[in-house]
């Protein structure tokens, strides 16, 4: 397409460029342009949260954002969550331990939204968890395992933080 232009983003710490039309949705750019297919599309209507990513530090629905709007921006997707190829992020481990996923389709968006919550609110109440995740639909789990997973992850992350502080102090 003649009206394609180069869009450059820093995604999960890596600088990446790919072509996009002015109308290309950010979610299509991420999935097909950058090949990061962990971010999913559930509606393209802003109604399900499956496409949730972090855009310049804020949660964003990648189906309601154009790729060109993200030119020069910093993005985080589910692929950037785990600290190492052979280690899961505490949220990811907690989702497995608490059976917070079934088909796994909502999971990337859910993890990104939950991570955002725990960065801001390390010790959330159940109500805070539920309201923060209310834009993310899961059709499989009934949310019971998801809420439990976020609680578990919050506990583990706080314990980790205390440990790290302890180590630094000694």
């Amino acid at each position: 397409m003649s009206n394609e232009r180069l869009v450059t983003v820093t995604v999960n710490g890596e600088r990446r460029s790919a072509l996009a039309e002015p109308r290309t949705l950010l979610v299509d750019f991420i999935r097909h342009g950058l090949g990061l297919t962990g971010t999913h599309v559930g509606c393209e209507q802003g109604g399900c949260g499956a496409c949730t990513v972090v855009l310049d530090g804020e949660l964003a629905l990648a189906c309601c954002t154009l790729a060109v709007q993200a030119d020069g921006a910093t993005l985080q997707t589910v692929e950037g969550l785990a600290p190492a190829p052979d280690r899961l992020h505490p949220l990811q481990s907690a989702f497995q331990a608490e059976h917070g996923l079934q088909c796994g389709y909502c999971t990337p968006g859910m993890l990104i939204a939950a991570d955002d919550l725990l960065r801001r609110t390390p010790d959330p109440t159940e109500q805070e968890i539920r309201s923060h995740l209310s834009g993310n639909v899961c059709r499989c789990t009934g949310y019971t395992g998801i809420v439990a997973a976020v609680q578990t992850a919050a506990r583990n992350l706080r314990a980790q933080a205390t440990e790290t502080r302890g180590v630094t102090a000694s």
Partner: peptide, 19 residues
């Protein structure tokens, strides 16, 4: 038993039909 299929989904590595 914890699910063996989970890590692929949790890391965004599972391939769905659009992938």
């Amino acid at each position: 038993v914890l699910r063996v299929e989970d890590p692929a989904f949790l890391r965004g590595r599972a391939a769905f039909i659009d992938d």
